[in-house]
Nucleic acid binder design. Sequence first.
DNA 1: TAGTTGATCGTCT
DNA 2: GACGATCAACTAA
Length: 220
Amino acid sequence: MKAASPALKPFGPAFYRKPALDLARALLGKLLVRTIGGKPVGGWIVEVEAYIGEEDPACHAASGRSERNGVMYGPPGHAYIYFTYGMHHCFNVVAGKAGIPEAVLVRALEPAFGIGEMKRRRGEKVSELNLARGPARLCEALGLDLDRNGILLAGPELFVAKGRPAPRILGVSARVGIRKGLDRPWRFFDAESPFVSQGRSGPSGRRQDPRKALRSGRGI
DNA sequence: TAGTTGATCGTCT
DNA sequence: GACGATCAACTAA
């Protein structure tokens, strides 16, 4: 297959070989590129979260290594994709070094190319703004699922490439959608981008109360 | 517009 | 058997 553009050159392993907090900030503004049918689909990363080690209660590795989170313990630069809420996937970039479970959750993209393909996957009537705003939407737009878990982010199927300069205003907050580790401000985003999943004028309490999740359970 | 609820299944205990 | 790094549709005001 043909490279989409000379500018779309995947970063090598060295790019990922840094602590998750550093990688998270480094990823902002970079291009996340998925090749579908020989054509690039993707956009600029505008929102990420860092998950760091077994001491981080919100990290999947908090209770040790398992079959599910094994990719996080592997070498950096691989995709850690997991399934959650029975219907959604989330995409992470493994950071740090092998043996230490660190990863960066990519939460939102500003679509740059392959927008038609993304719309086909997300729905034709979905606005560009909402194509990849949120981790599950991002995965759906790029066709990322458990089959891609563990793949190397050095292309050609999926990679990160040089994009635009880092955000002029770096937003920092607690991570979204978790109940533990809220004291750690490890969510980073482009404060000027409308493609960020939260933090503009959005509702403050969109998170689901866990007690309601209980109520919504099947069985009665 | 803001708040609430249901969907749905892999993983862990 | 319970829970979850979510999202979209629904309802109330």
